[in-house]
Design a protein around this nucleic acid. Sequence first.
DNA 1: GGGCTGAATTGAAACGTTGTAAATGAGCGT
DNA 2: ACGCTCATTTACAACGTTTCAATTCAGCCC
Lengths: 345, 345
Amino acid sequence: MTEALRRVIHGQASVKDVARRAGVSAGTVSNVLNRPQLVHEVSRRRVEQAMVDLGFVRNESARQLRGGLSRTLGYVMLDAANPFFTDVANGADHVAEERGLSLFLCNSRNTAARERALLRRLEEQRVQGVLVTPTDSDSPWLAELAGRGTPLVIVDRTPTSGRFCSVSVDDVRGGRLAVGHLVALGHRRVAYVGGPDSLGQVRDRLVGARLAWQEAGLRAGDLRVIRTSDLGVADGRSAGERLAGLPRDGRPTAAFCANDLVALGLLQQANLSGLRVPEDLAIVGYDDIDFAAAAAVPLTSVRQPRLEMGRTAARMLLLEAEEDQHQHEQVEFVPDLVVRRSTKS
Amino acid sequence: MTEALRRVIHGQASVKDVARRAGVSAGTVSNVLNRPQLVHEVSRRRVEQAMVDLGFVRNESARQLRGGLSRTLGYVMLDAANPFFTDVANGADHVAEERGLSLFLCNSRNTAARERALLRRLEEQRVQGVLVTPTDSDSPWLAELAGRGTPLVIVDRTPTSGRFCSVSVDDVRGGRLAVGHLVALGHRRVAYVGGPDSLGQVRDRLVGARLAWQEAGLRAGDLRVIRTSDLGVADGRSAGERLAGLPRDGRPTAAFCANDLVALGLLQQANLSGLRVPEDLAIVGYDDIDFAAAAAVPLTSVRQPRLEMGRTAARMLLLEAEEDQHQHEQVEFVPDLVVRRSTKS
DNA sequence: GGGCTGAATTGAAACGTTGTAAATGAGCGT
DNA sequence: ACGCTCATTTACAACGTTTCAATTCAGCCC
């Protein structure tokens, strides 16, 4: 208790405190910490005991300042409440753990200002590298961050220029898969549900959808777009209300949603509004999160290799951090379609 | 580009570099950063320009070392893939943002060793405080961490001793609510599905379940326990297989799951096995995550005020960090039951 | 005993930032 | 010209850790 009191007054124990108590110099304490082979066993034990007695905890700031690199990676996620991103994070986390690094997750909540502030904070902490799923991969601060030398990998977006490493999935292809599937089932009035347009994912999936639509020789006007302000369950619900409010003969017979959360919300609202899925409204989601299969009507969805994306992104990040001369690389995974009841008639 | 090259060779620009370029002393640069009113406008502008030119980024390590506190909080989550925890994290994040702090999320993945390592890392970084949903709130390292002076708030667990601040929900009461509801509906053979027992939540909810069972004067043996190795969707599915394999006349007519992920998995497997919900098997979940309402059969669930828990936890943490003489406090929220179709006959 | 080897330890400098106390010097009244 | 004030700027000493060159000294051989 007196030890505790001392600490309250003097702050945490430092290497010097430990050294004094063990009757050695600070250098020896540091050696115990970093190159124990150099230290005689007797001293080593005395130092270790002193550390325990004083509750010594390395001061990472000082350590880092002196020269070492930090032992952390950061991942600025777009939406921590979306299981897709937590799964990606998990993949990255595994790789980090293998290398003895810690991964700190940050949630930008799809807000550019927050994203920027978080990246700044991570850079100030001199993390070893940063993964980011940006609100906009052309934001100047991403290029600046990379330009200043912090390794950076873009996740789930393909930057327009080749200035960054990135791991993504071919969203155009995903959109084409989804709508191609609906067209093949005979749907001739389809809605794309998603937003905001500032998200590249949202845009690309729509591009793919339009592509499939064109390929089938259908009228552009019959591929309707219902914009949402975000990509959560609640946004899907309100899109569902809008959809249910349309007159039957003008209403789309199928909806392709920009992600599964929206699709689940839409599904839920369709149920409440008395629309049968898939008879009155077929639904395709995107991401194939675990909940898609467990939904009211199991959801057809475009699957992305989430864990693998996270792992690859982390590996690329570490590679970029190690190599002197680094060649940026864009890895693009291929999505596939998982057909379930929500589109089976 | 030549500037970039210089940085590659010499590392990031420091206050001294900025000072040299702006033709002032390091102290003035520091003043621009921390007390701009003191600096003459002309110098201020020159310094600011120099910072831009050199791509100066504060070195948080040095800053912290010199005396300031860190500007970050940490939250060591039990399972980042569980929306319950990300919602709690969101609540905490909002409070952190209000105070200009950043919240770093870490995922212990329900592994004691990882939890310990992450807490150590956060302590080494001298974060301002730590939120943690521990695998076991009696782990010695929690007490040690707090003993060394890092503010600590336990989330979603009530520690057995009053040594920490904590924010939790009355899990016993939640379990009692759930099973009380099932009993009132006439169920006389009920299964509790959850695990591992090392999780206090799992234990307490079972205690509550047993309490309700007793209160109804039912035989203890008819409240069956199906243990899972974890609390994910997959664990619910395998529990469902076990349940469906039982002979009809011995099979429980209702299941109370330790969380919604398990309940969703169970629901899914029940569907696949041809058990109708709720007719053949009623299901109650726990947490009332967004997906519960969107499930195959909308899920009856015990609701916890997730966002509010996160907000409260963060506020308590900051309070503990500010106050000299701190009185630990246990806040306990009251859960309520949301009845949906999965238990309505 | 003198000189050598090698293991173990030490002292001091450096990392980048900040607060403090001291310095500078312009403007002003006498 | 002198002393004074006030705004602005500066030099310098910390913070805790690590590294490197320098030092100590026990043991050994000739």
